[in-house]
């Protein structure tokens, strides 16, 4: 799925990374625990989270995850967006709750990143 489609499906506001919207992802994971993202995620997909701090961006950067979606209308700081831009990560925010956002993406064919 193109990152652009994720933005459409979640009616998300794009915050940075316009030039990478045509990137492809085939899986996603949703967590507010970066510890679990670091330990369980196996592929480079989308990270959905309700946690807002610089470590969300750094975690995605370490894991080579190309896109972060902040759910529940969370607003990342300017500093976080500068860091994401530097790391080439697309960042968007959606008014959807985490459960809804996951359901929408899952039903449109995005796999689970933890691949149990």
């Amino acid at each position: 799925m193109k990152i652009r489609e994720i933005q459409d499906l979640l009616q998300a506001e794009l915050l940075c990374g316009n030039d990478a919207l045509d990137g492809d992802v085939d899986s996603a994971c949703c967590s507010d625990m970066m510890s679990d993202v670091l330990a369980f995620v196996k592929d480079q997909g989308v990270l959905l989270t309700g946690l807002v701090n610089a470590q969300v961006i750094r975690t995605a950067a370490m894991m080579d995850m190309p896109c972060i979606v902040f759910v529940r209308s969370k607003i990342p700081t300017e500093e976080m967006l500068i860091l994401a831009e530097e790391c080439g990560i697309v960042v968007m925010r959606s008014a959807r709750r985490a459960y809804e956002a996951c359901g929408i993406l899952y039903s449109h064919g995005l796999n689970s990143l933890t691949g149990q």
Binding site: D32, M33, M34, S35, D36, L38, A39, L51, T59
Partner: peptide
């Protein structure tokens, strides 16, 4: 609350 402390590191 900061996203760490699962004992996985």
């Amino acid at each position: 609350a900061l996203g760490f402390g699962a004992g996985m590191g």
